[in-house]
């Protein structure tokens, strides 16, 4: 199926923090201190890891109960090749562990020789030396008959109310056939749009589907490298990830013949001269790459400004 080779790595990251609320906060505060606490429901069941309400009745939980640190494995699997971010870098097991005193099982890592793994085995919680109020403060479980490392105390601070929960996911983004065709045109210094067969509008960057009509666009239309500034903004403040030195002008440039403006930069002039109706042309970089950044910017040309009437439908 693949006719497209234009792919690009992409990393999605969110630097989220999670607030814990009182129940999970108390659980994590206890873990930081080297203890495991479950919650007791009105029916007398002890749930660990805790939840804020009885999952069966929706009632508030009644109180907290210390459980473990030993427990029994109810099921497990072996991770022969751990992924980065998983609890242990050496081969390990994930297991469900029913801690002594609890009626539900906790999922966590189990550090154990593979041959010793068996459902029903007795295990013990091992705490990380450095603890900050996260589930990973409980580093892993290990067989209960192995000597447990001594708990390293951490200073008792105020209760845990939040922790860092970053999201990191990596992708390989494919351009798609329509965008790839456009980007290949850029390597030839062409700006090619696509026309909708139903409404005749010409889109650039091209779209495979007309957003107004919902039909496939049909025809590649080479567009002029000249156009009109329909609107603009002067960027005067720096921000993270900024490529250009402020101040600079970001503008919508309506290429002659196109029906939608292209968002780009206006250069080679004082930002205070940039105006609606200004006529501009594309300036290409030396080393063409399959990206719209191969157009370095649009620069003013010696033509009278376009009248507002001529582009008002495209602002």
């Amino acid at each position: 199926m693949t006719t497209v080779e234009l792919v690009s790595p992409f990393v999605l990251e969110y630097a989220y923090k999670r607030s814990t609320g009182p129940v999970i906060g108390r659980f994590l505060t206890a873990l930081r201190a080297g203890r495991i606490e479950g919650v007791r429901t009105a029916t007398g069941r002890v749930l660990c890891p805790p939840v804020e309400y009885d999952p069966e009745t929706g009632e508030d939980i009644v109180d907290f109960v210390e459980v473990g640190p030993e427990g029994t494995v109810t099921t497990w699997t072996w991770v022969a090749e751990p992924e980065p971010g998983q609890p242990l870098s050496e081969p390990f097991a994930y297991a469900l562990v029913k801690l002594d005193g609890a009626d539900t099982a906790m999922l966590h890592a189990l550090k154990c020789g593979k041959d010793a793994l068996v459902t029903g085995m007795r295990v013990r919680a091992v705490f990380a030396a450095e603890r900050s109020g996260m589930i990973t403060d409980l580093a892993y479980f290990q067989p209960a008959d192995l000597p447990a490392p001594e708990l390293v105390p951490v200073p008792a601070e105020h209760p845990v109310t939040r922790f860092k929960a970053p999201v990191h996911a990596e992708y390989t983004v494919a351009a798609g056939a329509t965008t790839a065709e456009f980007l290949r045109g850029i390597l030839r210094k062409e700006l090619n749009g696509r026309r909708c067969p139903s409404c005749d509008k010409i889109y650039i960057p091209p779209r495979g589907s007309c957003p107004l009509c919902g039909v496939r666009t049909s025809e590649v239309v080479p567009l002029a490298q000249k156009g009109t500034v329909t609107t603009f903004s002067i960027i005067r403040i720096p921000f993270e990830g900024q490529v250009l030195e402020p101040p600079y002008a970001a503008a919508h440039v309506l290429l002659d013949g196109a029906d939608v403006p292209l968002l780009h930069i206006v250069g080679d002039c004082d930002v205070d001269d940039v105006r609606m109706g200004m006529r501009v042309e594309a300036v290409w970089v030396e080393d063409l790459q399959p990206t719209l950044a191969s157009v370095r910017y649009f620069r003013p040309i010696d033509e009278p400004d376009a009248t507002y009437e001529s582009f008002k439908e495209h602002v």
């Binding site: 999670r18 814990t20 999970i24 659980f27 994590l28 890891p49 099921t75 497990w76 699997t77 991770v79 992924e83 971010g85 998983q86 609890p87 994930y94 297991a95 469900l96 906790m106 999922l107 966590h108 890592a109 459902t119 996260m134 589930i135 990973t136 929960a165």
Partner: peptide
């Protein structure tokens, strides 16, 4: 996000525990 996501437990591992 509190008790499971930080452990990065993948769906195959979860399914394997169910299978066992």
């Amino acid at each position: 996000p509190y008790s499971l996501a930080p452990l990065q437990v993948d769906p195959h591992s979860l399914a394997a525990m169910q299978a066992r």
